[in-house]
């Protein structure tokens, strides 16, 4: 017998269910008093360097219904393309860019909003430079494993054209599902479509 590898298997995912806000945003839900404030209220602190932007959107299902129970988390680099993370080895990120936020769809309208700074390009240690993007992780009732997608920006044409992740999407017609549309100065719109004709590209990476 060869030596055993002794690796483990990842814990299987289960849906976040309809009550995910009890655990992750109790104050927003109205169950205050457990923690002083919810985590992930903003990905930036005052003084964050970079262009201030606002992204708004909705998450829709395959029947065109807007999800009012979606909870998302965003993760992004600072304006120089550095992550505020112990695992970042390329340099030190802007201390005022946390980079992570929880985004909760409005319980009545399903509208969500992210106020942040536009991330910079991220140069990969193995070569190549990713276009500015915000990683987005989506959970809700009915979603068995959190969905990973990315918000890119339609006004970053040049960077998008050479992004090693975007360029790996064979169905070029689907790339626009990852592009936030500019609706005004510093204003973007990004809708997530879980299923159907305009289905957003979801990643396994």
């Amino acid at each position: 017998m060869p030596q055993p590898l002794s690796y483990l298997k990842e814990t299987p995912s289960q849906t976040a269910g309809p009550y995910v806000h009890i655990g992750l945003t109790p104050n927003l839900l109205g169950n205050g008093g457990i923690f002083p404030q919810d985590l992930g209220l903003s990905p930036i602190k005052p003084g964050a360097k970079g262009e201030k932007i606002t992204i708004t959107g909705q998450v829709r299902d395959g029947a065109g219904m807007v999800l009012r129970d979606a909870l998302m988390e965003s993760w992004q680099a600072d304006a120089a393309g550095l992550y505020n993370s112990p695992s970042e080895t390329r340099g030190t990120a802007d201390p005022n860019v946390i980079g992570w936020a929880r985004i909760v769809a409005d319980f009545d309208t399903g509208d969500w909003r992210l106020d942040t700074i536009k991330p910079g390009r991220v140069t990969l240690p193995q070569g190549g430079t990713m276009a500015p993007h915000i990683s987005l992780w989506i959970v809700a009732r009915g979603i068995n494993t959190g969905l990973q997608t990315r918000i890119y920006f339609e006004d970053e044409e040049e960077a998008n054209a050479t992004c090693p992740v975007l360029s790996r999407i064979e169905h070029r017609g689907r790339v626009p599902t990852l592009l936030a549309k500019k609706t005004g100065p510093g204003q973007y719109r990004f809708d997530v479509v879980l299923q159907g004709e305009d289905e957003t590209v979801f990643f396994d990476l």
Partner: peptide, 21 residues
């Protein structure tokens, strides 16, 4: 109605997945 119907785009992880808060 909440399940994506298209295949996930599979790629090696990048710094965006290898770093975290």
């Amino acid at each position: 109605t909440r399940a994506p119907s298209r295949a996930l785009i599979a790629l090696p992880s990048t710094l965006s997945e290898e770093t975290g808060p």
